[in-house]
Design a binder for these strands. Structure first.
Lengths: 145, 145
DNA sequence: ATAGGTGCAAATATTTTGCACCACC
DNA sequence: GGTGGTGCAAAATATTTGCACCTAT
């Protein structure tokens, strides 16, 4: 559970909007949310928090390392809780579901590649886009063509 | 060199803007360009092609498989020629340089991961963000702190 | 001739910012 | 009580679309 001290630790005042937004990421069943997603959840709870504040808070949380910002192919930025452990993403292009994975061997090879190219890696992200289990035409069923 | 027939093959009329834009991607030393980049190059050559047309053509080329659209962390879409061979990207967060690489082992593991999760992969992209050789503080030199 | 393509301007979508007011410490 | 935070509206940025005119086939 998020506490006021968590925010103070990163130099931010513990205000209601910040606590609420952080709490949303911790409790929502959707780990990956856009600013609009967050805003709509707040509206749904009758909280009077402006969209501009949502953007500001999300950016602050990202800079503080509490959240990670992704750019999936939608064009909107998507945020998720930074739980320390790096991982990559499988994104369903049909229903938008996001699954996470981690593969040590891939990480190792990424590091090797960066070194070979003389790059000092700061972050990396990998997205596999496709159809998730539920969105694939079922085997044995006819397609509509 | 791009030819009118290349465009007709994909069901598009061979118009001057389309031929020119395709040619730009084939001849420019910058493989990765935003719509604005393309537009500015056209303006620089005194070609009277609207930004809207650039966006329309880039989208058509992407749908036809001639170009690939990326979403780097900049927030703008970046396009590059689709040369058949899939590859991934090292992106310099300072100077914007993009280097490409391909690693068969990583590809293999991506496929295995997708299968394990029941995903039917349509595309994937991997971006390693960091400082390229030229943008790293040189070894032995003092930092400014 | 005509279906499709284009430029321009206006519309949309996403994110940022200026400003007056308000709340945490 | 003052610094920092907030909501709102407006601005900035990126992209799409409506429309009248134009052009490749």
């Amino acid at each position: 559970m998020s506490k006021a001290s968590d925010l103070k630790d990163i130099g931010l005042k513990a205000t209601a909007p910040r606590l609420k937004i952080l709490n949303l990421f911790e409790t929502s069943d959707q780990r990956h949310m856009t600013a609009e997603d967050v805003y709509r959840l707040l509206i749904a709870e009758d909280l009077d928090i402006g969209l501009a504040t949502v953007y500001r808070v999300l950016t602050q949380f990202e800079q503080a390392g509490l959240l990670v910002r992704h750019h999936f192919e939608s064009g909107k930025a998507v945020f998720e809780l930074n739980q320390g452990s790096h991982h990559d993403h499988l994104v369903c292009v049909k229903c938008g579901k996001v699954e996470e994975f981690f593969d040590a061997e891939i990480e190792k090879r990424q590091d090797a590649i960066a070194k070979k190219h003389g790059f000092a890696i700061e972050s990396h992200s990998m997205y596999l886009y496709g159809l998730c289990k539920d969105c694939q035409p079922a085997k044995g069923s006819k397609s509509s063509f």
